[in-house]
């Protein structure tokens, strides 16, 4: 039994996606951020926005760490009073996207067919076209949005911005049912039960 429990936790650092469901509370972002800064962990990407459930917010946090550290950090996040649930996943466990906006001079776009092809090849769409500049948008993985920057650089890329990563956990049935359980004073077994004990090698996974 002990062998089963003490499955080797990866000691290799890799990207982990931490999903946090929280109440909408002022100051909670700070409390969560502190848990990373205290261990001197850099947050590589952070997105927070209302979830599919009213009044519940969802954080997507990306860090590069070992699973052992990620597990400890997620438990400390889940300890925060306003945090409902925390999950962590590797990139293989999720579908993820980042969105990027590119501002380029319209005259160059209009004149050079090469650019147009570049945009099409990169799946970019025009969001705004003005006399002086055009804003394109693309979504994808980091490498994809990066590729377009490199491609546009010679054509006078004026400004660029990229959003934080958002991700969907492949093996998840959402949070609606769980939340209803949380709202009960005596919730059902699967919510209050010691989830991380069920699958100690995949703490907090669904």
């Amino acid at each position: 039994m002990s062998d089963q429990n003490q499955k080797e936790i990866s000691i290799v650092k890799q990207e982990y996606n931490i999903t946090v469901y929280t109440e909408n509370q002022i100051g909670l972002l700070g409390r969560i951020a502190i848990i990373f800064t205290r261990r001197k962990i850099n947050i590589e990407s952070l997105n927070t926005s209302p979830s599919e459930i009213e009044s519940i917010h969802r954080f997507n946090i990306v860090i590069t760490e070992t699973e052992d550290v990620v597990r400890k950090v997620t438990r400390q996040i889940e300890k925060q009073v306003e945090v409902l649930k925390v999950y962590y996943n590797t990139n293989e466990d999720i579908i993820w996207q980042e969105m990027a906006l590119y501002k380029v001079p319209t005259d160059i776009i209009a004149e050079k067919a090469l650019v147009e092809r570049l945009l099409r090849e990169n799946g970019a769409r025009a969001v705004v076209i003005r006399k002086d500049y055009t804003v394109f948008e693309t979504t994808g993985h980091r490498s994809e949005t990066d590729a377009l920057i490199i491609a546009l650089q010679p054509f006078g890329l004026i400004e660029f911005v990229r959003s934080a990563r958002i991700s969907i956990i492949k093996d998840s049935d959402g949070f609606n049912r769980k939340l209803r359980e949380f709202e009960r004073i005596e919730p059902g077994q699967d919510v209050i039960e010691n989830e991380f004990l069920n699958s100690r090698d995949k703490v907090f996974s669904m």
């Binding site: 929280t22 109440e23 009073v81 306003e82 945090v83 409902l84 939340l179 949380f182 709202e183 077994q189 209050i192 039960e193 010691n194 004990l197």
Partner: peptide, 11 residues
């Protein structure tokens, strides 16, 4: 408090 579980059900 719905987001706060002071103690679990013992397994």
């Amino acid at each position: 408090i719905r987001s706060y579980r002071p103690k679990p059900i013992v397994r």
